[in-house]
Design a protein around this nucleic acid. Structure first.
Length: 423
RNA sequence: GGAGAAAUGGCAGAGUGGUCGAAUGCGGCAGUCUUGAAAACUGUUGAGGGUCACACCUCCGGGGGUUCGAAUCCCUCUUUCUCCGCCA
């Protein structure tokens, strides 16, 4: 969430930047400032009351010690009034703080200067494009048909075991998945990211830390018995490593990577666009996460984009990069680049990676800080990106590498799969 | 799942009703000494709110209570450890 002090001091800027998301935040921002003023006024009032009652208590203690019990008892009577006042103020203060927080939870991050104003994916800007779209042979198939033809992914079996959106990978399909995961992790660790294996369920505090809670609760599977959530992305356990942490400046930057399955309820998204691997309830993803000094975070974002580009270049897949417009940029992000692979047989683009700078938006909730050169604690910047999401990469490979005799395996993956073709 | 013990500053570890934001040790930082470093010595060293700066307020796992006053007493939750049970 945004910092109140920042909103207070940059009111116009905040409102103007939020317009990029097509949000008129004037009312909300004014409310934040009013609530904050009231909160601080109540806090001061409460502090004064408590100070008075503290000093009275001290006095009473001294009187008892010097044997002047009568005087002490007299003072005791005075304290009851103060107690009542402070209790009232306490209640007012906590309800005001709560109202302020609820409001703050609802305000998305302010987009970076580069972000265009816009409503939806139609307003996103293509900033890069690479790779040749192959000319497929007659009778080329979409990936779900290929999966069936070569018996490498069984969607019906997943439906039987669990439900729609939980595919079962078989034989060379399963091995290709494993090869991709290992290949991605190898690329990431070679680039300096430290590999982590993270929990696949997280508690409520972690959900709040990265911003899934309280608003996007419906997107996560909730294990009510233990009040735990299945992770929708490794970003959640990965970034929460740094919850309530004060780093030394010399420890920055930090880069971590991890493979996890991701679980998403995807409530309300059904239809033609969810066929095959296009949209699943469970999928695999390798994630990269960075903790950066605020002055270096955009440089780091560019570095992450270059890193993902390198992987796609090696895989020789046709892809493009979009800079998301305000309306399509996720709640917590200040600037997001999406990578999309071209699904030739479906003739459409599929999102395979999303690389974002959250600036201090997550760090403020996480209380992730570092000790700066002045010895003060300062919020760090958090970033993350997929490198990469498996199912759509797999879809891209199946469709773009299909031939009449089978599906070729990208050269760079062959050492990992141990085979060169699926036939 | 059952029984017991515990939770204090970066770490270790005192503190059982007032002068405790908290002894002491280690670590960190700064200085003295040194050609430099180490050792030794001296000082300093939690966070948040608030203020121009002070003052002041809050925080000893979380929440609630008793009391004029709580790290200290009571209730409750969570976590950790030990023993038993179960188990990849």
């Amino acid at each position: 969430m945004l910092q109140v002090a920042f909103i207070r001091e940059n009111k116009e800027l905040v409102i103007k930047r939020l317009e990029k998301r097509n949000i008129n935040a004037t009312q909300m921002i004014n409310d934040v400032i009013t609530f904050d003023e009231e909160r601080r006024r109540l806090q001061t009032e409460l502090d004064n009351t408590l100070a008075e009652s503290n000093s009275l208590s001290k006095e009473i203690g001294n009187l008892f010690k010097s044997g002047e019990a009568q005087k002490a008892n007299l003072l005791k009577e005075k304290t009851s009034e103060l107690k009542e006042t402070s209790k009232e103020l306490q209640d007012l203060l906590s309800s005001k703080s709560e109202a302020l927080n609820e409001l703050l939870y609802k305000i998305p991050n302010i987009p970076n200067d580069l972000v265009a104003r816009g409503n939806s994916e139609l307003d996103n800007e293509e900033v890069f494009k690479a790779g040749d779209v192959p000319v497929l042979h007659d009778g080329a198939l979409p990936h779900w048909e290929l999966a069936k033809k070569y018996d490498i992914i069984d969607f019906e079996l997943g439906t039987k075991i669990t439900g729609a959106g939980f595919p079962v990978y078989k034989g060379k399909g399963a091995k290709l998945q494993r090869a991709l995961i290992t290949y991605f992790l190898d690329k990431n660790t070679a680039a300096g990211y430290t590999e982590y294996q993270l929990p696949h369920l997280v508690n409520e505090a972690s959900g709040f830390g990265t911003g899934q809670l309280p608003d996007k609760e419906g997107q996560m599977y909730h294990v009510t018995e233990d009040n735990l959530y299945l992770i929708p992305t490794a970003e959640v356990p990965g970034t929460n490593i740094f919850r309530d942490v004060v780093l030394n400046e010399s420890e920055l930057p930090i880069g971590i990577t991890g493979y996890t399955p991701c679980f998403r309820r995807e409530a309300g998204s059904y239809g033609a666009h969810v066929r095959g691997l296009n949209r699943l309830h469970q999928f695999d993803k390798v994630e990269i996460i960075r903790i950066e000094h605020p002055s270096k975070s955009y440089e780091a974002l560019d570095g992450m984009v270059e890193h993902v580009k390198g992987i796609l270049k090696e895989l020789k897949l046709p892809y493009r990069i979009l800079r998301l417009c305000g309306g399509d940029t996720s709640f917590a992000s200040a600037l997001t680049y999406d990578f999309e692979v071209f699904s030739t047989a479906q003739d459409r683009w599929l999102e395979i990676s999303s690389v974002s700078n959250f600036e201090t938006f997550q760090a403020n909730r996480l209380k992730l800080r570092f000790k700066n050169s002045d010895g003060k604690n300062e919020l760090a910047h958090t970033l993350n990106g997929s490198s990469l999401a498996l199912p759509r990469v797999l879809a891209g490979i199946l469709e773009n590498y299909q031939t009449e005799n089978g599906i070729k395996i990208p050269e760079v993956l062959q050492p990992y799969t141990g085979f060169k073709i699926i036939d």
